[in-house]
Protein backbone atom coordinates (compact mmCIF):
# COMPACT_ATOMS: atom_id res chain seq x y z
CA UNK A 1 0.00 0.00 0.00
CA UNK A 2 1.68 3.20 1.12
CA UNK A 3 4.16 2.39 3.85
CA UNK A 4 2.74 4.92 6.32
CA UNK A 5 2.32 2.37 9.08
CA UNK A 6 5.73 1.86 10.62
CA UNK A 7 7.38 1.74 14.01
CA UNK A 8 9.81 4.28 15.38
CA UNK A 9 12.94 2.25 15.61
CA UNK A 10 14.73 4.42 18.15
CA UNK A 11 11.97 3.78 20.65
CA UNK A 12 11.80 0.00 20.22
CA UNK A 13 13.46 -2.41 22.59
CA UNK A 14 15.86 -4.79 20.86
CA UNK A 15 13.48 -7.63 21.58
CA UNK A 16 10.59 -5.81 19.94
CA UNK A 17 12.72 -4.79 17.00
CA UNK A 18 13.61 -8.45 16.48
CA UNK A 19 9.96 -9.33 16.66
CA UNK A 20 9.14 -6.70 14.08
CA UNK A 21 11.90 -7.82 11.77
CA UNK A 22 10.96 -11.44 12.22
CA UNK A 23 7.41 -10.62 11.25
CA UNK A 24 8.51 -8.54 8.27
CA UNK A 25 10.93 -11.20 7.03
CA UNK A 26 8.42 -13.93 7.84
CA UNK A 27 5.80 -12.19 5.74
CA UNK A 28 8.29 -11.93 2.90
CA UNK A 29 9.03 -15.63 3.07
CA UNK A 30 5.35 -16.46 3.35
CA UNK A 31 4.62 -14.40 0.22
CA UNK A 32 7.41 -16.13 -1.67
CA UNK A 33 6.37 -19.60 -0.63
CA UNK A 34 2.74 -19.11 -1.39
CA UNK A 35 2.92 -16.88 -4.44
CA UNK A 36 6.31 -17.23 -6.06
CA UNK A 37 9.22 -14.96 -6.70
CA UNK A 38 7.25 -11.94 -7.85
CA UNK A 39 5.15 -11.75 -4.70
CA UNK A 40 7.71 -10.29 -2.25
CA UNK A 41 7.56 -7.15 -4.41
CA UNK A 42 4.31 -6.38 -2.65
CA UNK A 43 5.75 -6.77 0.81
CA UNK A 44 5.27 -3.66 2.89
CA UNK A 45 5.13 -2.24 6.41
CA UNK A 46 1.38 -1.84 6.40
CA UNK A 47 0.74 -5.53 6.02
CA UNK A 48 3.44 -6.33 8.56
CA UNK A 49 1.37 -4.30 10.98
CA UNK A 50 -1.72 -6.22 9.92
CA UNK A 51 0.00 -9.54 10.57
CA UNK A 52 1.10 -8.37 14.03
CA UNK A 53 -2.39 -7.19 14.78
CA UNK A 54 -4.13 -10.37 13.64
CA UNK A 55 -1.78 -12.70 15.50
CA UNK A 56 -3.59 -14.38 18.38
CA UNK A 57 -2.14 -13.18 21.71
CA UNK A 58 0.91 -15.14 22.83
CA UNK A 59 2.98 -14.51 25.93
CA UNK A 60 6.23 -15.11 24.12
CA UNK A 61 7.37 -15.58 20.57
CA UNK A 62 9.83 -18.29 19.60
CA UNK A 63 12.94 -16.93 17.92
CA UNK A 64 13.44 -18.61 14.59
CA UNK A 65 15.99 -17.84 11.95
CA UNK A 66 15.74 -18.28 8.24
CA UNK A 67 17.77 -17.42 5.20
CA UNK A 68 16.90 -14.23 3.41
CA UNK A 69 15.94 -14.80 -0.22
CA UNK A 70 17.57 -11.59 -1.37
CA UNK A 71 20.80 -12.43 0.41
CA UNK A 72 21.04 -16.17 1.22
CA UNK A 73 24.29 -15.75 3.11
CA UNK A 74 22.48 -13.87 5.77
CA UNK A 75 20.38 -15.49 8.46
CA UNK A 76 17.66 -13.27 9.82
CA UNK A 77 15.13 -13.68 12.59
CA UNK A 78 12.08 -14.88 10.73
CA UNK A 79 8.66 -15.98 11.96
CA UNK A 80 7.40 -19.35 10.83
CA UNK A 81 4.27 -19.44 8.72
CA UNK A 82 1.15 -18.86 10.75
CA UNK A 83 -2.50 -18.09 9.98
CA UNK A 84 -1.94 -14.39 10.66
CA UNK A 85 0.99 -14.20 8.24
CA UNK A 86 -0.89 -16.18 5.65
CA UNK A 87 -3.89 -13.91 5.91
CA UNK A 88 -1.70 -10.81 5.61
CA UNK A 89 0.07 -12.34 2.61
CA UNK A 90 -3.17 -13.30 0.83
CA UNK A 91 -4.72 -9.93 1.44
CA UNK A 92 -1.71 -7.98 0.29
CA UNK A 93 -1.79 -9.91 -3.00
CA UNK A 94 -5.50 -9.20 -3.45
CA UNK A 95 -5.13 -5.53 -2.67
CA UNK A 96 -2.06 -5.21 -4.90
CA UNK A 97 -4.04 -6.79 -7.74
CA UNK A 98 -6.94 -4.38 -7.49
CA UNK A 99 -4.68 -1.37 -7.03
CA UNK A 100 -2.76 -2.35 -10.18
CA UNK A 101 -6.05 -2.69 -12.03
CA UNK A 102 -6.86 0.86 -10.96
CA UNK A 103 -3.52 2.07 -12.20
CA UNK A 104 -4.05 0.41 -15.57
CA UNK A 105 -7.38 2.18 -15.92
CA UNK A 106 -5.98 5.54 -14.79
CA UNK A 107 -3.13 5.44 -17.27
CA UNK A 108 -3.34 5.28 -21.03
CA UNK A 109 -2.36 2.41 -23.26
CA UNK A 110 1.29 3.36 -23.35
CA UNK A 111 1.86 4.62 -19.82
CA UNK A 112 -0.18 1.79 -18.40
CA UNK A 113 2.01 -0.80 -20.02
CA UNK A 114 4.29 -1.57 -17.04
CA UNK A 115 1.20 -2.07 -14.91
CA UNK A 116 -0.30 -4.40 -17.48
CA UNK A 117 2.88 -6.45 -17.55
CA UNK A 118 2.87 -6.68 -13.75
CA UNK A 119 -0.79 -7.60 -13.75
CA UNK A 120 -0.16 -10.46 -16.15
CA UNK A 121 2.63 -11.71 -13.90
CA UNK A 122 0.52 -11.40 -10.80
CA UNK A 123 -2.54 -13.12 -12.20
CA UNK A 124 -1.81 -16.71 -11.00
CA UNK A 125 -1.02 -15.41 -7.50
CA UNK A 126 -4.21 -13.35 -7.48
CA UNK A 127 -6.30 -16.34 -8.59
CA UNK A 128 -5.00 -18.37 -5.69
CA UNK A 129 -5.43 -15.60 -3.13
CA UNK A 130 -8.96 -14.85 -4.32
CA UNK A 131 -9.87 -18.52 -4.03
CA UNK A 132 -8.54 -18.59 -0.47
CA UNK A 133 -10.19 -15.34 0.66
CA UNK A 134 -13.28 -14.89 -1.52
CA UNK A 135 -15.00 -12.55 0.95
CA UNK A 136 -12.04 -10.17 1.18
CA UNK A 137 -11.63 -10.23 -2.59
CA UNK A 138 -15.26 -9.26 -3.08
CA UNK A 139 -15.10 -6.46 -0.51
CA UNK A 140 -11.87 -5.12 -1.95
CA UNK A 141 -13.27 -5.04 -5.45
CA UNK A 142 -16.59 -3.49 -4.41
CA UNK A 143 -15.04 -0.81 -2.26
CA UNK A 144 -12.39 0.17 -4.77
CA UNK A 145 -15.10 0.39 -7.44
CA UNK A 146 -17.21 2.53 -5.12
CA UNK A 147 -14.17 4.69 -4.45
CA UNK A 148 -13.43 5.07 -8.15
CA UNK A 149 -17.03 6.13 -8.71
CA UNK A 150 -16.94 8.67 -5.87
CA UNK A 151 -13.70 10.04 -7.27
CA UNK A 152 -15.19 10.29 -10.75
CA UNK A 153 -18.17 12.18 -9.34
CA UNK A 154 -15.85 14.51 -7.42
CA UNK A 155 -17.41 13.63 -4.06
CA UNK A 156 -17.25 16.74 -1.82
CA UNK A 157 -17.25 14.76 1.43
CA UNK A 158 -13.83 13.48 2.37
CA UNK A 159 -15.38 11.20 4.97
CA UNK A 160 -17.44 9.44 2.34
CA UNK A 161 -14.45 8.91 0.08
CA UNK A 162 -12.31 7.70 2.96
CA UNK A 163 -15.14 5.42 4.06
CA UNK A 164 -14.75 3.20 1.01
CA UNK A 165 -11.07 2.62 1.67
CA UNK A 166 -11.61 2.28 5.42
CA UNK A 167 -14.25 -0.40 4.83
CA UNK A 168 -11.81 -2.28 2.66
CA UNK A 169 -9.25 -2.43 5.43
CA UNK A 170 -11.95 -3.19 7.97
CA UNK A 171 -12.76 -6.34 6.03
CA UNK A 172 -9.37 -7.71 7.10
CA UNK A 173 -10.64 -8.00 10.69
CA UNK A 174 -11.99 -11.34 11.90
CA UNK A 175 -15.72 -11.63 11.40
CA UNK A 176 -17.08 -12.60 14.81
CA UNK A 177 -16.59 -12.10 18.54
CA UNK A 178 -15.64 -9.03 20.57
CA UNK A 179 -12.14 -9.15 19.13
CA UNK A 180 -13.71 -8.61 15.74
CA UNK A 181 -15.55 -5.50 16.96
CA UNK A 182 -12.36 -4.04 18.38
CA UNK A 183 -10.20 -4.86 15.37
CA UNK A 184 -12.73 -3.68 12.84
CA UNK A 185 -13.01 -0.31 14.60
CA UNK A 186 -9.22 -0.06 14.71
CA UNK A 187 -8.77 -1.05 11.07
CA UNK A 188 -11.58 1.23 9.92
CA UNK A 189 -9.86 4.24 11.41
CA UNK A 190 -6.49 3.08 10.17
CA UNK A 191 -7.92 2.92 6.66
CA UNK A 192 -9.52 6.32 7.03
CA UNK A 193 -6.28 7.76 8.34
CA UNK A 194 -4.20 6.25 5.51
CA UNK A 195 -6.60 7.45 2.82
CA UNK A 196 -6.80 11.01 4.12
CA UNK A 197 -3.10 11.28 4.83
CA UNK A 198 -2.34 9.99 1.36
CA UNK A 199 -4.72 12.57 -0.09
CA UNK A 200 -2.91 15.30 1.84
CA UNK A 201 0.42 13.97 0.66
CA UNK A 202 -0.71 13.95 -2.99
CA UNK A 203 -2.50 17.29 -2.80
CA UNK A 204 -0.04 19.29 -4.92
CA UNK A 205 0.49 16.51 -7.46
CA UNK A 206 -3.22 15.78 -7.87
CA UNK A 207 -3.96 19.46 -8.41
CA UNK A 208 -1.28 19.81 -11.05
CA UNK A 209 -2.61 16.91 -13.10
CA UNK A 210 -6.25 17.68 -12.31
CA UNK A 211 -7.01 14.45 -10.48
CA UNK A 212 -9.63 14.11 -7.77
CA UNK A 213 -8.32 14.72 -4.27
CA UNK A 214 -10.50 14.25 -1.20
CA UNK A 215 -8.78 16.96 0.82
CA UNK A 216 -9.05 19.49 -2.00
CA UNK A 217 -12.70 18.54 -2.53
CA UNK A 218 -13.49 19.30 1.10
CA UNK A 219 -11.28 22.31 1.87
CA UNK A 220 -10.45 23.77 -1.52
CA UNK A 221 -7.13 23.63 -3.37
CA UNK A 222 -5.19 25.08 -0.44
CA UNK A 223 -6.32 22.40 1.97
CA UNK A 224 -6.79 23.20 5.65
CA UNK A 225 -4.04 21.58 7.66
CA UNK A 226 -5.35 22.55 11.10
CA UNK A 227 -8.77 21.07 10.44
CA UNK A 228 -7.42 17.98 8.72
CA UNK A 229 -4.92 17.38 11.49
CA UNK A 230 -7.72 17.48 14.03
CA UNK A 231 -9.76 14.84 12.28
CA UNK A 232 -6.70 12.64 11.72
CA UNK A 233 -5.80 12.96 15.39
CA UNK A 234 -9.33 11.88 16.20
CA UNK A 235 -8.92 8.76 14.12
CA UNK A 236 -5.63 8.05 15.90
CA UNK A 237 -7.33 8.53 19.25
CA UNK A 238 -10.10 6.11 18.33
CA UNK A 239 -7.54 3.57 17.13
CA UNK A 240 -5.80 3.79 20.48
CA UNK A 241 -9.08 3.52 22.39
CA UNK A 242 -9.98 0.38 20.45
CA UNK A 243 -6.50 -1.12 20.76
CA UNK A 244 -6.59 -0.91 24.56
CA UNK A 245 -9.62 -3.13 24.75
CA UNK A 246 -7.90 -6.26 23.52
CA UNK A 247 -4.97 -8.35 24.58
CA UNK A 248 -2.08 -8.57 22.13
CA UNK A 249 0.36 -10.47 24.32
CA UNK A 250 4.03 -10.07 23.47
CA UNK A 251 3.15 -7.93 20.44
CA UNK A 252 1.62 -5.17 22.55
CA UNK A 253 4.82 -3.12 22.81
CA UNK A 254 5.60 -3.04 19.11
CA UNK A 255 1.97 -2.35 18.20
CA UNK A 256 1.86 0.46 20.77
CA UNK A 257 5.02 1.89 19.29
CA UNK A 258 3.43 1.95 15.83
CA UNK A 259 0.10 3.37 17.00
CA UNK A 260 1.28 5.95 19.50
CA UNK A 261 4.61 7.01 18.00
CA UNK A 262 4.98 5.84 14.40
CA UNK A 263 1.67 7.03 13.01
CA UNK A 264 1.76 10.48 14.67
CA UNK A 265 5.34 11.02 13.47
CA UNK A 266 4.50 10.01 9.91
CA UNK A 267 1.49 12.30 10.03
CA UNK A 268 3.68 15.16 11.16
CA UNK A 269 6.23 14.43 8.43
CA UNK A 270 3.50 14.48 5.77
CA UNK A 271 2.24 17.83 7.04
CA UNK A 272 5.64 19.49 7.13
CA UNK A 273 6.71 18.04 3.80
CA UNK A 274 9.61 15.89 4.99
CA UNK A 275 7.80 12.64 4.25
CA UNK A 276 8.72 12.48 0.57
CA UNK A 277 12.42 12.32 1.48
CA UNK A 278 11.93 9.74 4.19
CA UNK A 279 9.77 7.55 1.99
CA UNK A 280 12.51 7.18 -0.59
CA UNK A 281 15.06 5.77 1.83
CA UNK A 282 16.10 2.16 1.58
CA UNK A 283 14.23 0.25 4.20
CA UNK A 284 16.62 -1.80 6.30
CA UNK A 285 19.91 -0.26 5.27
CA UNK A 286 21.76 2.74 6.60
CA UNK A 287 22.03 4.53 3.29
CA UNK A 288 20.35 7.87 3.18
Amino acid sequence: MFGYVRPVRAELKCRDFDLYRATYCGLCRCLRRRYGLLAPMFLNYDFTFLALLLWPPETDFPTCYGRCQANPLRKEPMCLDSPALEQAADESIILAWWKLNDNVQDNGLLRGFPYRALLAGLYPAYRKAARLRPAFDRTAQQNLQALAQLEAEGCPSMDRAADAFAKLLQAAAPQEGTRSRVLSQLLYHLGRWIYLLDARDDLAEDLSVGRYNAVAARFGPEGDDACLRLTLDQSLRLMGAAFQLEDFGCRTAVLENILYLGLPLVQRAVFDGTWSEIKKQKIWSNRR
Partner: peptide, 19 residues
Amino acid sequence: MSTMDCCTTMLCLNCLCGR
Protein backbone atom coordinates in the same frame (compact mmCIF):
# COMPACT_ATOMS: atom_id res chain seq x y z
CA MET B 1 7.55 12.50 21.65
CA SER B 2 4.48 14.58 21.07
CA THR B 3 6.40 17.78 21.84
CA MET B 4 9.32 17.12 19.53
CA ASP B 5 10.50 19.78 17.12
CA CYS B 6 10.65 19.00 13.44
CA CYS B 7 14.40 18.27 13.26
CA THR B 8 14.02 15.59 15.88
CA THR B 9 11.06 14.16 14.01
CA MET B 10 13.24 13.88 10.94
CA LEU B 11 15.96 12.17 12.93
CA CYS B 12 13.63 9.65 14.49
CA LEU B 13 12.01 8.72 11.24
CA ASN B 14 15.43 8.25 9.73
CA CYS B 15 16.21 5.89 12.53
CA LEU B 16 13.29 3.68 11.79
CA CYS B 17 14.65 3.06 8.36
CA GLY B 18 18.13 2.33 9.57
CA ARG B 19 19.75 -0.90 10.40
